[in-house]
């Protein structure tokens, strides 16, 4: 399916620059990846409020923490791998324990990092961020949702982690989309199975649901952009209806969205949950699309897997 795609990283950079013009307290920090993360757009407009700390992710997080202590609203960007891995303890002990107003907008999450391979493919970032008290975790699915998530983060007090895809993504939401961080969105109503997803796998899941409907399977699709705090009600209501939940994510099946959904349902409405994502293994080099297929995350592979599960 050929569709026009937008660079969500460009959207991030442009949105930051717009917000920077409105709110003088917004500052941006990067660790030598401003061309990749697109914080360079902000840097060009507001050089005084942009800090490149060099290749030093620990310093990146703790410097942002200090700026937040002065009432600034720091947006911090680097690759998801290094933001959440290298500097996890700075995020945990300084940013979150102190409940500082730092926004970590990390790009290059998931297997779709592509050719750079496993060292750069963060399959653990959602688990690592979800675990920390005070942290809000958001995974937008397209350009519009990315823009809305960034605007939300700028106006919400407290630490926020936003995973921004490396890949360009087709539009899912139109201009009327209102981001509500307390709500998951039911994207498609169905009664046979609940497909719960977010981020880059939302478009694949929607395409998969269309194909499933052609063969008589009526799938409900739920987008969960905010993995923490998670909207329990929408997930439980869908599970009550379908009694069969499948989670789909561009992340390890350990600790991410799938785990979050299991935590909700096991306590409040136990039904069978199948987690689709990257199994307990490292990724590898390849084109993003090839990797999505290889790891079973594109629409065609999802159809195969899900029809198998529903037999």
């Amino acid at each position: 399916m050929a569709r026009e795609c937008k660079s969500v990283r460009s959207v991030y950079g442009k949105t930051l620059a717009v917000l920077g013009g409105i709110n003088k307290n917004i500052v941006v920090l990067d660790a030598d990846l401003s061309c990749s993360t697109q914080t360079q757009v902000f840097a060009k407009e507001f050089p005084d409020r942009f800090f490149n700390v060099g290749i030093a992710e620990q310093d990146l997080m703790t410097t942002a923490a200090g700026l937040a202590c002065c009432g600034k609203i720091p947006f911090v960007s680097t690759f998801a791998m290094f933001a959440t891995g290298r500097a996890w303890e700075q995020i945990r002990n300084t940013i979150c324990y102190s409940n500082l107003n730092v926004k970590i907008a990390a790009t290059h999450g998931g297997i779709t990092v592509g050719e750079d391979g496993a060292s750069h493919q963060s399959l653990e970032d959602i688990a690592l961020m979800r675990l920390i008290p005070n942290m809000t975790v958001i995974i937008p699915a397209d350009a519009k949702e990315t823009e809305e998530a960034i605007k939300f983060a700028a106006n919400h007090y407290g630490p926020v982690y936003i995973r921004i895809a490396r890949t360009s993504l087709p539009d899912i939401f139109d201009e009327s989309y209102k981001f509500d961080y307390k709500k998951a969105n039911v994207m498609r109503l169905g009664s046979d199975v609940s497909l719960v997803t977010n981020g880059e796998t939302l478009v694949e899941t929607l395409d998969c649901a269309k194909i499933l409907s052609d063969i008589g399977i009526n799938a409900e699709v739920i987008n969960v952009p905010v993995v923490k705090p998670i909207d329990k009600d929408t997930i439980i209501n869908s599970a009550k209806k379908t009694k069969n939940v499948i989670t789909i994510e561009n992340h390890s099946i350990i600790g991410g969205l799938g785990s979050a959904v299991c935590e909700v349902l096991s306590g409040d409405y136990p039904v069978k949950v199948t987690r689709i994502g990257i199994n307990d293994e490292f990724g590898q080099s390849g084109k993003a699309k090839e990797l999505m297929a290889y790891y079973g995350l594109n629409a065609d592979m999802l159809v195969k897997r899900i029809t198998g599960l529903l037999k």
């Binding site: 703790t62 410097t63 942002a64 200090g66 202590c69 300084t94 409940n99 500082l100």
Partner: peptide, 28 residues
């Protein structure tokens, strides 16, 4: 712990982070 006690700018305890936090404050 800054969220519990007034007079504490930021929580500390994990070593090696204070100088970098202070850089951020100095920049701010």
């Amino acid at each position: 712990c800054n969220t519990k006690l007034e007079g504490i700018e930021v929580s500390t305890g994990s070593l090696g982070q204070g100088l970098s936090i202070s850089c951020g404050i100095a920049l701010g």
